[in-house]
Amino acid sequence: MTRLARHPYTGIPRWVSALAVLAVAVVVLPLVAIVAKVDWENFTTLVTSESALDALGLSLRTSAASTLLCIVLGVPLALVLARSSFPFQRLLRSLVLLPLVLPPVVGGIALLYTFGRQGLLGATLQVLGVQVAFSTTAVILAQTFVALPFLVVSLEGALRIGGHRYEAVAATLGAPPGVVFRRVTLPLILPGLASGAVLSFARSLGEFGATLTFAGSLQGVTRTLPLEIYLQRETDPDAAVALSLVLVAVAVAVVSLAYGPGTAARRGLAQRSTPPLILERSVK
C-alpha cells in the first residue's frame, strides 16, 4: 500500500478529471449555499434558543443510547455473520443490511406496526405496561433500526480482513471461546468497531423519517434536531439554516473522525504487525 503511494500512477484521462470535479461540486455546492445563507449576526441566538438546545441535547442523548445499543447487538451479529456458516446466511446478511437502502419513512411505518398499540408486539407491551409510541424510547428504537447496519458492515469487514489465525492459535493454546473473544478478537476488531460506532452515531443523529413517523414530535421528548429543523423551516427559515449548519459541522467532525488521516479506520487491521496476544493467564 505504502509502496504504491510513493510512485503513484497519474494517467487519468482529462474527461474523467472533469467529471470528478463536477462530482465534487454536486456535494460541496449545496454545503456552500448553506454557509452563504446563514444569518451570522444572529447565529448564536438562533442556535441557542430553548427549543434548539432541547433538540440538540435530546439528539445527543438518544444517539449515544442507540449507538450503545448498536454495539451491544451489532458486535455479536457481525461475529456470527463473519465467523460461522449456516444455511441462509447470505439471506440473513441481506436482511440485516436492508435499513441501509430502505427509505426511513418505511422503517418508521414498520416500527409502528411492530411496537405500536395495534402492532405485532403492541398487546404484549400493553400488558407489561410499556408504552413505546410517542416516547424517547421510540426515538432510540428508530435510530437503532437505521444505524445498526453501519456497525455490522464496518465490523464484519474488519473481522474478515483480520482473518481468524490468531483466534485459532489462542484456541490451540487452550483458551476457551469466551477468553478468545475477550482477549484476542475484541482487541483485533477495536479499530473497526470504533469507526462503525462513529458512523452509527452519525446516522442516529441524522435520523428523521422513521422518528417522525414512529415517535412523533414533542419538544424535549421526541423532537430531535432534524425534526426541529423541519419544524422551524415553517416559520423561521433563518433558524432552520443555522441549525442545519450545526448538523453539517457535526457531520464533518464525524467523517473526519472516522476517515481522517491517522485514524483507526484508515490504519486498518491488515497492517497490524504484532498480534495482540496476551494469553499468559489463560494458558496455564
Partner: peptide, 22 residues
C-alpha cells in the same frame, strides 16, 4: 473490499444526514 465497504457506508450516511432538498 476493505476500502469499498466504508466508502459505501459513508455515502449512504451522507444521504441520511442531508435529508430532503426542495
Amino acid at each position: 473490499m476493505a476500502a469499498v465497504l466504508p466508502a459505501v457506508s459513508a455515502l449512504l450516511l451522507a444521504a441520511g444526514l442531508t435529508g430532503c432538498a426542495g
